[in-house]
């Protein structure tokens, strides 16, 4: 009988996702050093947001090369996240698909990425966004990215990471975004 209560917390702990684990670790760190909690960096927040975007988005089956293909987050261009992104993605899965991270200097082949974080020079961004479609949730920096046809653009609002959403771009990409996610978006482009 003593075995059962010992196992229950472990069983509960398992579904913790990477992002949650991150937040948990972050909170734990904050609690541990009551004097000056080390605030997560902007890129770390963004990395966690990337993972969370996947949970509020529905991809058509045609967006994947195969039924068993992983959901791949592609970081195109310069990588601001480093190994942190890999850490939080570790062990995560969605609808039976593993979540993988891939880095590429340019736009990779069609079907390779389901979420693409583009960190390219402004001139190339618009072209790359168009090249990725359809079936890819494109995430970039700033309002300009959304104007250029990107679906989600990170902005800073009072030092908090927020994001903008271009719904028509998402529609034309064949993606469905959860209304709940839209409810916390800073602005929604048409």
């Amino acid at each position: 009988m003593a075995v059962v209560p010992a196992q229950l917390p472990r069983a509960r702990a398992r579904p913790l996702s990477g992002a949650v684990a991150f937040l948990f670790a972050f909170a734990a760190a904050a609690l541990q050093s009551s004097a000056a909690p080390p605030a997560p960096t902007e890129s770390q927040v963004k990395a966690a947001f990337l993972l969370n975007f996947t949970k509020f988005t529905e991809w058509p089956a045609s967006a994947f090369p195969a039924a068993s293909s992983p959901l791949t987050i592609c970081v195109i261009g310069g990588d601001p996240f480093g190994s942190f992104l890999d850490t939080i993605v570790q062990g995560e899965s969605l609808d039976g698909r593993k979540i993988a991270v891939r880095r590429a200097p340019t736009v990779p082949d069609h079907g390779l990425c389901q979420l693409a974080y583009l960190n390219l020079p402004l001139a190339e961004t618009k072209k790359a966004v168009a090249a990725l479609q359809p079936g890819v949730l494109t995430v970039g920096e700033g309002e300009k990215f959304v104007d250029d046809g990107g679906i989600i653009g990170f902005v800073l609002d009072n030092n908090h990471v927020r994001f903008l959403v271009n719904l028509s771009a998402a529609q034309s990409a064949g993606l469905k975004l959860s209304s709940r996610m839209l409810s916390v978006a800073k602005a929604i482009g048409k």
Binding site: A19, V45, F49, N52, K55, F56, H160, V161, R162, F163, S178, R180, M181, S183, V184
Partner: peptide, 15 residues
């Protein structure tokens, strides 16, 4: 709780 998922996920205490 359902309605709170996004706010929790995207660190939006106001929402």
């Amino acid at each position: 709780a359902e309605n709170s998922t996004a706010a929790l996920s995207f660190q939006d205490p106001q929402a």
